[in-house]
Structure formats: C-alpha cells, structure tokens
Design a protein around this nucleic acid. Structure first.
Lengths: 146, 146
DNA sequence: CAACCACTTTACGTTAACGTCAACGTCGTC
DNA sequence: GACGACGTTGACGTTAACGTAAAGTGGTTG
C-alpha cells in the first residue's frame, strides 16, 4: 500500500484538466494483466517507445493507449507486425505522402473485411454453441430423470 | 478438368437425398484453401479421423464439417487444443456422464463470453478504423489541393 | 548498512502451428 | 514402361510471442 512515486514525477502542473500521470512498467503490466516482459517485447517490436529516465522506462497516456489498442488487436487475431504497421503509418500520417496514405487506406479496408468476416463467424459459432448446449441439456435431463 | 474417381466410390446408393460424396485430401485442401499438410496435422492433433481405404484417407461430409468448424474456430482465435476439447466432448455426449456434460457447458459459457468480448472489441476497433480513415482522407485532400 | 524491492539487459528456452524435404507407393496415360 | 499427378510417412526447420534465468543497478526502509 505504498503511494507510487510516479505521481510526483510531474513538474509544476498548471493545467487542471491535463492528466500528466505516468506509469511504471509494473503498473502498466498489472493494469492490463500482462507481464513486464511482454511490454518490453512490444517495445522491441516497435509498438511502444516510452520515455527513459536514466535506465528505467516511463510510460505516458499515449503509451497506455497504444498498449490497449495493441492488446485489443491481438484479441482480434492480428499479428504484432500488422499492428505495428498501422501504428507506424498513423504516426507518420501528417507528413506521409499520398502513396503511403493510400496504402494505409488499403490496410484499413483489409482489416475491415477481416472483421466483417469475424462478425459472421461469431454469429455462426454462437448458433453452434446454442445447438450444442441444447443437446447437452437434453441429455443431462434424461440422466437426472433416470 | 478430370472427374474425380471419388464420385464413384459409393456402393449402390438407394436414397436420393442422402449425399454420399467423399473427398480426397487434395480436394478438401483446395476447398478451404489450406495445404494437405495442415489437414494431416489436424488429424494428428485429434481433430479429424477420416476413413482409410488402404493407405489413403477418405473424407466424408462429417469430416468436411469438422474441418469447417475447426477453421472457423481458428479465425476466432481458439487454439487447436480448445477446439479438440469441444469436439471430443460433443462426440462423447450421448454417453457422457453428468460431470462431463457440466464441464462442457462451462466451456461453452467460456467461449460465449470470449465472443461477447470480441464483439465489443470489434465495435471499438471499427470506430478506431473510422477515425483513422477520416484523418487519412483529410490529409489526402489537403495534399491534392496543394 | 544491509536487505529488499522494482527495474534493467542479455541470452537461451519453449510452444503452437504448420512448412519443407526426402523417399516411397499407386494410379492413369501417352 | 516412363512419366506426372497425387498420396503416404518421417523427420527436421521455422516463426511468432513470449517465458525464464542470471546478473547487475538504483532507491527506500528498518
């Protein structure tokens, strides 16, 4: 129950609305239920780029959001490489050339169709589960009766 | 464009509605856009159990459905082990004991909540994509104007 | 000051899901 | 009867996504 020193690590904060909260790798790891190792690995793969205070990594809101998006992407079956590609293009957007931007739109369309398919898969799978569950309950009832 | 010999492999079929079609490993592979190696691997992992005519494998409708379900499960991020678990329990259902059946229901509920979460993830991800796409289009327009 | 965290790097290990290659059998056909 | 297409087993290779262990650093706490 010790108060994190990270809380104090911000210099004279004038704004009230501005959240200048930072996180240690351990905090972030607990928040998202991953290991620090995972977070370092994502950095190594170019998905995160936290600030450094000496040796130790310091994560800001931006990093937290990225991690959240990364994990969400993973749950949807995207590879880290795919996720990185999108993140990189997103970051380079303002001064990205037309070719890059069009490539980005392509990728997005691709992800979109991917997700449409997943939606359909989920619908179908839910029906299967309904079916299996029904049968299972039937069998269970018969077992209870006898 | 040669007619598959598999077509002839069924003995005097009286029923009209009954589809007694069988498939070779290659046919199945092309149908689902996987390699034969993948299909053999799934068999080795207990997900398929095709008939054998001598050395060669012969796949029936049942096998085709299983493969379809397996691939769908994969697209949803389930491991082959998880998929096998469900398939095995499903097959053993009629004479499965109450404990097994309840375990099955647990697994199903688990998959269900998994998919609920995926639905939410997809919704969120779609919004992200909308957002990114909008920005990208804006930047593109500005590039076109200048 | 010693002990104890939390954090760091380096490096090797592991697992799932196949790919790839070799070496062979079996058709139909030219 | 050689050839090509397809099938088989077996074994080893590969990739992604981390796990794990070793060895060191830096701060605070009793």
């Amino acid at each position: 129950m010790n108060i994190s020193k990270a809380e104090v690590s911000s210099p004279a904060n004038g704004s009230l609305t501005r959240q200048r909260r930072t996180y240690s790798i351990g905090e972030l790891a607990r928040m998202f239920e991953v290991t620090p190792r995972t977070i370092r690995f994502y950095e190594q793969e170019g998905l995160l780029a936290p600030e450094r205070r000496g040796q130790t990594r310091i994560y800001h809101e931006k990093d937290r959001v990225r991690l959240k998006l990364t994990l969400r992407g993973k749950r949807l079956g995207f590879s880290l490489a795919e996720i990185r590609e999108v993140i990189e293009m997103y970051d380079a957007m303002p001064d990205g050339n037309a070719r890059q931007l069009k490539r980005l739109l392509e990728i997005l369309a691709d992800k979109r169709s991917n997700m449409e398919r997943q939606l359909e898969d989920i619908r179908l799978m839910q029906r299967e589960l309904d079916d299996v569950e029904m049968r299972a309950r039937e069998v269970l009832e018969r077992l209870d009766q006898s």
